[in-house]
Every structure is written in structure tokens, then in C-alpha cells.
């Protein structure tokens, strides 16, 4: 079973940078730019299709509706396909995070570090923190930020290396490729504390939504278990105040009928 949660959240972190940098890139500024619009001011609603390719097992896909209201850190995920998962979903209200199961008609608390449905997403991933509170630009021996020019798919980017400034993040080290033209994230790589590459993400098809640039397609490659990759496609994004009753157990339950 695959879950939309992790990837969705990653997408939310990606934001539009409003100003391009000069020839002399500043890592801190890039991070600030990425962080600047982490939070959406408006509620959004989107359809999400997630296709998970598992090595030797072919592809599995999942479709869901995603409702998000950042003003009080709430979101709802209602799975619409495949039939076996239809009606299941997730609800977050502030501190509380539940998983809903249609078969048992129960809401189950998701533990903070519980793996969600066997994926590498954890309940804690939804306790969002600003990027700059988790990472800072990594520096070389001379104290110089590790930023250099690179390309991703032929697009000129800044490659920025960041390291965690707090200890409780999934990945202590990351590399980020940020498009030089608009400071949008094109690719990132996550490393374990020993420096092993664990995952790579690609972000494409940016679209302007409520003054934020949102990647409509993300590809996440599992670098440990080669051949595992996950595609996240967003569509039909709508912006604007959502009916508050959506962010409730009752609503999620009603979607399973």
C-alpha cells in the first residue's frame, strides 16, 4: 500500500522564490527563499495521483483528494482509488493525527514516529517546521558555503549543500539544486549521517497557486532500494476557503459511503 502523505508534504515545502540571485550565490538567501512561502495563506484542494514503482513488483497507483488549511495546520486526505483503499484516509487537526480505515470504521491515532502504511513517511513528518529551523548551509574547511553552479536536465542550477542544525530530522545532510532563474527547487538528495545517499527527488511542472509555485510533478527515487521510485502528480488545484466541516472525522467518514 502506498501513501500520498510524505510526498504531498514535500511539495508543500517547495515554494516560489521571488527574486533571482546574482552571480555570487548566498546559501542562506537561497534557503530563506525556499522557506519564505512554505506556508500557504489560502486553503487548497487538489487531486493527487501517486504511482509507486517497486523493484520487481511493477507499479501501484493511488488517487486521492487532498484538502489543506495551513492556518490551523489541518489537512485531510481522502483516498478515492484503487477500490481496495477507497474511503480510507488521514486527518490532521493541530496536534492530532488520525488514520481512518473504512473496513473497521475506526480512527486510529498515528504515532509520531510510526511508519505510515509501511512507507518511509512518519507521523512526525507532519509536525512541520520551517526549513531554516532544521537546516543551514554546509560550509567547507575555510568556512565557505558549499554552493556551486550545476545543471539539472540542462537547466542551470545552484547546487547547495545543507546540514541539519537540529538533531531530530530524518536526514542530517541534503543537497539541493535550485534553478538559477527563479530559485525553484529542481532536485534534492538526502543523505544519512554517515553520508550515504538515501533518496533523490525531482520537482517539475511548477504552477502558480495562491502566489506560490507548486511542483505539479514530483519523482522520488529510493537510492537504497534501487528501482523503487514514486511519482506524485497534482491536478485540479483549487485555491480558496474550504468548507470547515471538511476537516473533521465526520466528513472523512462520510467519504467512505
Amino acid at each position: 500500500m502506498i501513501h500520498p502523505t510524505k510526498s504531498l508534504h514535500a511539495s508543500a515545502v517547495l515554494v516560489l522564490a521571488t527574486c533571482a540571485l546574482g552571480a555570487d550565490p548566498d546559501g542562506a538567501k537561497i534557503l530563506k527563499a525556499l522557506e519564505a512561502n512554505e506556508t500557504l495563506s489560502a486553503d487548497i484542494h487538489s487531486k493527487v495521483a501517486i504511482t509507486e514503482n517497486r523493484a520487481g513488483q511493477g507499479a501501484k497507483s493511488l488517487k486521492c483528494e487532498y484538502f489543506r488549511r495551513d492556518s490551523d495546520k489541518s489537512f485531510v486526505i481522502a483516498i478515492t482509488a484503487p477500490e481496495s483503499d477507497r474511503g480510507n484516509g488521514y486527518l490532521r487537526q493541530g496536534e492530532h493525527f488520525w488514520m481512518y480505515r473504512r473496513n473497521t470504521r475506526t480512527f486510529q491515532h498515528v504515532n509520531r514516529d510510526e511508519s505510515i502504511g509501511g512507507s518511509d513517511a512518519k507521523g512526525q513528518d507532519f509536525e512541520s517546521r520551517p526549513l531554516s529551523q532544521m537546516y543551514a548551509p554546509a560550509k567547507d574547511a575555510q568556512g565557505k558555503e558549499l554552493v556551486r553552479a550545476d545543471t539539472v536536465g540542462g537547466v542551470p542550477c545552484w547546487k547547495l549543500e545543507v546540514r541539519a542544525i537540529v538533531s531530530d530530522v530524518d536526514y542530517p545532510k541534503k543537497s539541493m539544486w535550485v534553478r538559477q532563474s527563479d530559485l525553484l527547487l529542481a532536485k534534492d538528495q538526502s543523505f544519512s549521517s554517515q553520508g550515504t545517499l538515501m533518496r533523490t527527488g525531482y520537482y517539475t511542472k511548477y504552477q502558480l497557486v495562491a502566489q506560490r509555485q507548486v511542483p505539479m510533478r514530483q519523482v522520488h527515487v529510493d537510492e537504497v532500494e534501487k528501482g523503487n521510485r514514486t511519482l506524485v502528480d497534482l491536478s485540479e488545484i483549487k485555491v480558496g476557503k474550504l468548507d470547515p466541516t471538511i476537516f473533521s472525522k465526520a466528513w472523512l467518514e462520510s467519504q467512505s459511503k
Binding site: S167, V169, S192
Partner: peptide, 14 residues
């Protein structure tokens, strides 16, 4: 072979 797991500080490790 390799194995991925979460360490006692919550970080993903391989």
C-alpha cells in the same frame, strides 16, 4: 547487503 532503519535519534540511516 544494506538495510535502512531509523536510528535512536529518529534519523533515517542505511
Amino acid at each position: 547487503f544494506s538495510a535502512r532503519f531509523q536510528d535512536s535519534r529518529g534519523r533515517m540511516q542505511v
